[in-house]
Simulated assay, not measured.
Amino acid sequence: MHRFADPIDRALLDDWQRDFPVAARPFAALAQHLGTTEADVIARLRARQAAGQITRVGATVAPNTIAASTLAAVAAPEGRVEQVAAIIGEEPGVNHSYLRENTWNLWFVATGPDRAHVGAALARIARRSGLRVLDLPLVRPFNLDLGFSLRGETGARLAPPPPDITVLRPVDRGIVQALMRGLPLTLRPYADIGAPLGLDMDAVIARIRVLVAARIIARLGVIVRHRALGWRSNAMVVWDLPHDAVTIAGPVLAAQPGVTLCYERAPVEGVWPYRLYSMIHARSRAEALARLGAAADRPELRGAPHLALFSSHCFKQTGAMVAGERTPA
């Protein structure tokens, strides 16, 4: 694994991106697996976070279950990229924001407790920037695991069965929002996130286990920054296929080596025709293009118009907004 000669660091960042222990002292459970101490595990995670190599130990959620989200883009003039990126980043619900190689160059994910909150955020960005905002809501996922193998393993994790939203309780929103910010790197982190919510540790653990089993929490574990760890050639590849063709091509694309995300989104008529989206992460542009070439040569995708939007800068990468917070005027 790039930059990590220490086997404990390698295992900590690669093996615990999901299935993180939901127990009274989770870092002690990790220490037992890794053959070290609880204090050492916490110190290593703090060091990796301080170095910008991980964003947090926390959760990702299945889209549009406990919260709403959409992918969006603006076409910022060259001289205004930094200014417009700052406007986008000031929205608390924007959790990912990247500069990509396209006329539509600033791409971001807007999240919030409901669709109205997301729509209001997009409207504020449009008003403050003076630019049109493409709103590209999710239609269906094919691979949304969001884990990332630092060893370069390429096996796909296909979309699981639909989440069971019937298990949701009012208390869950605060718990999940805390997990989006990240577990405190302390001895009893579940107790620490429960205290401000008026919940004891056992109640927090019980609800997290329910949400994981119901697939509302899609992943609980170490959230890495792949660019900081050497995977710097990353492209969002968009494919122009009709809905029925996406039904066939989506699962095939999701299973391709190097494809880490794959989903269908709604197009924007007359502006943005692309329905099928995939992410490719690689160490070099040549490697990314080789993986794209192999995917494009599949019979289900052969001849389909597509664009590779390589990312050149990350402006923001945080957890999603699940509970409402103060928003800019």
Rank of each mutant, 00 (worst) to 15 (best):
T36E: 03
Q32R: 14
Q32N: 13
T55Q: 13
E38S: 07
D40Y: 02
A31I: 10
E38G: 06
A43H: 08
D40G: 11
V41C: 04
Q32M: 12
V41I: 13
V41K: 00
R56H: 13
A47W: 13
L34M: 10
Q53P: 04
A29F: 10
A47C: 07
R44C: 13
A50P: 09
G35R: 11
R46W: 00
R44P: 09
R44I: 11
R46L: 05
R48D: 11
E38L: 07
T36I: 00
G52N: 04
I42S: 09
A29V: 15
A39Y: 06
D40P: 01
R44M: 02
I42C: 04
F27D: 04
R44V: 07
Q53Y: 00
G52S: 05
I42A: 04
A28L: 15
A43G: 11
H33L: 12
V41W: 01
F27G: 07
Q32G: 06
A47V: 11
A43D: 12
L45T: 10
A50N: 09
I42L: 15
R46K: 12
Q49P: 07
T55F: 02
A43W: 06
L45G: 07
Q32F: 10
I42G: 05
A39F: 11
A50V: 13
A43T: 12
A50C: 11
T37L: 05
A47G: 10
R56A: 05
Q49S: 11
E38A: 11
F27A: 07
G52R: 09
H33V: 08
H33G: 11
A43Q: 13
R48C: 14
T37I: 02
A29D: 14
R44D: 01
T55V: 15
L34W: 13
R56M: 09
L30F: 00
Q49Y: 08
A28R: 13
T37H: 04
A31L: 12
V41T: 00
F27Y: 15
G35H: 08
D40E: 15
I54Q: 01
L45N: 04
T36C: 12
I54L: 00
A50F: 07
L45V: 08
L30S: 04
G35W: 09
L30I: 07
R56D: 03
A39R: 14
Q53E: 14
A50Y: 08
A28H: 13
R44A: 06
A28Y: 03
Q49W: 08
T55G: 15
L45I: 03
H33R: 15
T37C: 00
R44K: 14
H33F: 08
Q32T: 10
T55P: 00
Q32C: 06
A28I: 04
V41Y: 03
T36K: 07
T37S: 12
A31E: 10
I54D: 00
D40A: 15
I54T: 06
L34A: 11
T37P: 00
I42K: 04
Q32A: 15
A39W: 06
L34C: 08
R46H: 10
R48M: 14
D40Q: 07
R46E: 12
Q49V: 02
A50G: 14
Q49A: 14
A31K: 09
A29I: 04
T55I: 07
I42R: 15
